[in-house]
Design a protein around this nucleic acid. Structure first.
Lengths: 146, 146
DNA sequence: CATTTAATTGCAATTGGTTTTCAGTATCGC
DNA sequence: GCGATACTGAAAACCAATTGCAATTAAATG
């Protein structure tokens, strides 16, 4: 039986007149098997461990499809590198990032979400989405520093 | 009497062995006279209206000094272009951005700030800074759409 | 105020992530 | 199968931002 994620992807492909190719299949599978937050470059290197002649551009192009189809979420921490993570079946969340080691924790706080709506409403804005990144030092790096 | 902002800048320059030059003076003055959120490119174009032969690199280099000295704040909305705004004498705030017209509203909510600390603390993180952007439609753009 | 040293400048070249172009190849609906 | 489209990898193009460089200028010192 086809997994629910694959169905969503194939439906998106079909609905938009896109074709399935061995490269895309490989990239999507690799994406789904890779946990955490990673760059296109990183995903490319993992893909190439399996099949050596997949082009970098194809990885970028496929990641765009993954984002558009709702399977991936793309964000960047302000350093010019886009990071990707699984979006299908994952609730919305923000990130807590260690500035020392780069560790990332997914966070969610309903109070913050509510206040965001409320603040936006105060200015008559209709809120669509938001991004929030908290930067600091993780427990481990605090110890190492002391 | 020298304004307080200028003093902070000159002190920073001196403390770091930096020299004052006509170009830097012009760029800093232009920066201080320009309100809102703007890119280095935009600042450069305003500067060149006054003196035509200021190099683009000098604007970037001076903006870096402004950020380091605490006079400017640099952030980006995720589209790869850094935006700058006045930081001296301005309290910390986040941004509410209209995705249609690009209008930006500066926002602040103490409840959100408190919860951020609290969420970070829950994971043992020591919070240093954060960025939060709320994206949506401003009142004007909502009307135009309807 | 001259001198010397270190900093600064504009320009052009470079970087680095990402996107696009292009000619050849593969996919999909019929 | 066949034809219209879509896809591919490689390389070139992009674009904001940075850097190397040789000439110029600021500024501390004597």
């Amino acid at each position: 039986m086809k997994s629910s994620v694959e169905k969503v992807f194939l439906d998106y492909m079909h609905d938009n007149g896109l074709s399935m190719t061995p490269q895309r299949k490989l990239i999507v599978e690799t994406f789904l098997e890779t946990e955490g937050h990673f760059s296109a470059e990183t995903l490319w290197s993992i893909v190439r461990e399996r099949v050596s002649d997949v082009g970098q551009a194809t990885v970028y192009r496929t990641l765009k499809i993954l984002v558009d189809s709702g399977l991936a979420d793309c964000f960047d921490l302000g350093d010019g590198v886009s990071l990707y993570e699984h979006a299908y079946g994952h609730e919305h969340h923000d990130h807590l990032v260690c500035m020392q080691c780069g560790a990332k924790v997914e966070i969610f706080d309903q109070t913050i979400e509510n206040r965001q709506e409320e603040v936006a409403g105060r200015f008559g804005f209709e809120l669509t989405r938001h991004r929030m990144y908290l930067f600091g030092l993780c427990p481990k790096c605090q110890k190492e520093k002391a």
